[in-house]
Design a protein around this nucleic acid. Sequence first.
DNA 1: AGGGTTCATTAACAAAAGATAATAAGTGCT
DNA 2: AGCACTTATTATCTTTTGTTAATGAACCCT
Lengths: 192, 192
Amino acid sequence: MYQQLHQSIAQFLQPSQKEKALLEEAFVFRQVPKKFKLVEEGQVATEIYFINQGLIRLYYTKDVEEITGYIFRENLFSSSYDSFLTGTPSQQTLECLEDCELLVISNNDLDELYKKMPSMHIFTRKMAEQRFINAQRILSSFILDSPEERYQKFERHNRDLLQRVPQHYIASFLGITPVSLSRIRKRLMEKK
Amino acid sequence: MYQQLHQSIAQFLQPSQKEKALLEEAFVFRQVPKKFKLVEEGQVATEIYFINQGLIRLYYTKDVEEITGYIFRENLFSSSYDSFLTGTPSQQTLECLEDCELLVISNNDLDELYKKMPSMHIFTRKMAEQRFINAQRILSSFILDSPEERYQKFERHNRDLLQRVPQHYIASFLGITPVSLSRIRKRLMEKK
DNA sequence: AGGGTTCATTAACAAAAGATAATAAGTGCT
DNA sequence: AGCACTTATTATCTTTTGTTAATGAACCCT
């Protein structure tokens, strides 16, 4: 159950047996069904979710429209990280796109863990750095690439998600309407 | 000379006198002229720059075009952070928009500092978190807002930069052409 | 002071995306 | 199985932005 988590942590730390036990104590297993909302807009996020199995969609709500900000997959830490870090109400909703198997750590348990296991500071630093790098990559794609190029990159790096996720979620993640994505796909089909 | 740096650090840590001395040892004062390039595209970034005075522009190069990714101001840590963290060549250039007074820390000196002052892990974690939150804000503005709204938000939060920075740098930061920004400004003028 | 560069605005046209609506296929639920 | 809902595509029209070019103002440099 904790194998994937330990593997993820091993990228940055070599925890002792005792520390591994502390980690397993802090991260609690939780199963949630498709469409379950882990964080709702307006709430303060108090948990971080490591995904053993499933997909989680982060989205913003603008008027009545849902706009996908990210799709988290297996072996990633998912959260409304902004809200979690600042303790302010989340502008984002976190919703399961599939039945999910998660390992959950709360705010409080993470603070406990910092005390018992100081190297956790290093891990969460690495985690923050990774999330920065990721956000930066997506941002630079918005700055540098056309919607068509963004779709092609997405296709290259996340081919499986095209099968697992409704297309209009991907459209809004790419910053365009479903109609526009459909046109882009048609254009690309005709080129080949 | 180190007052602003200490103030920035004091947001997250309460370093001892000895630790303050270590910090002053690690951060080296450097003056550089307007247009000086601190990091060039293709190089690996090995330094982080705390800005005592001046402005630094981060930009991408697409074909022959320079596209501004961010403008760093006084009391911020500026870097090609992605490259600094991963040790891979930077896709970004860091250029001074004004004569700058900087406090510079190198990769190696930061590693030294981690050893001598473990709480530095906490500080850099906070720094990474801040940069994530910042990237996230900008990204969500690209996702949620029209160019017109982005400009209005920029105007609200960075009025002074409109005076200090050529408008076409701001245009590319907002993801539009200078021509389009000029049109938007005209539209907004007429509304009021 | 003068000459070259950079910069912001404006105009005209082209290209792309948004909005709306209709259709058809697919999915889920009881 | 059947009905409602979701989803993807396509068409039409509108709006916005990009592209290119021209103009005049501001700035820099020696």
